Amino acid sequence: MKKGTDKMLKAINITKKFGALAAVDDLSFEVKEGQVFGIAGPNGAGKSTLYNLITGFYKYEGKIEFDGQNITGLPTHKIARLGISRTFQIPQVFESLTVEESVNLGGRFGSSGKFDSGYCDEMISFASLEKERGNKTDLLNLLGKKRLMIAAAMATKPKILMVDEPMAGLNVLEIKQMTNLIKKINQDLNVTVIIIEHFMKVLTELANPILVIENGREICIGTPEEITSNPEVIACYLGDTHDA
Rank of each mutant, 00 (worst) to 15 (best):
G4Y: 01
K7F: 00
K16H: 14
K16W: 08
A20W: 00
D25W: 01
V36Y: 02
G38M: 00
I39D: 06
N43K: 12
T49W: 14
I54M: 11
Y60Q: 07
E61A: 15
G62W: 11
Q69A: 13
T72E: 08
K78Q: 12
L82R: 13
P91V: 03
Q92R: 15
F94T: 05
V99H: 02
L105Y: 13
G106P: 07
G106E: 08
G106D: 12
S112G: 13
G118D: 11
D121A: 11
S125D: 07
A127P: 02
R133P: 12
G134Y: 07
K136I: 13
L140D: 05
N141I: 12
L143E: 08
L143D: 03
K145R: 15
R147L: 12
M149E: 15
M149Q: 14
I150Q: 05
A152V: 00
M154R: 03
M154D: 06
K159T: 12
K159G: 14
M162L: 15
M162W: 14
V163W: 03
D164G: 09
P166V: 04
A168Y: 04
G169Y: 05
L170H: 08
V172R: 14
I175V: 15
K176P: 00
Q177P: 05
N186Y: 08
N190Q: 11
T192W: 01
V193G: 06
E197P: 01
E197K: 06
E197L: 04
H198Q: 13
H198T: 09
T204V: 06
R217A: 14
R217E: 14
I219K: 09
E225W: 08
E232G: 13
V233S: 03
A235K: 15
A235L: 09
D240L: 04
D243W: 09
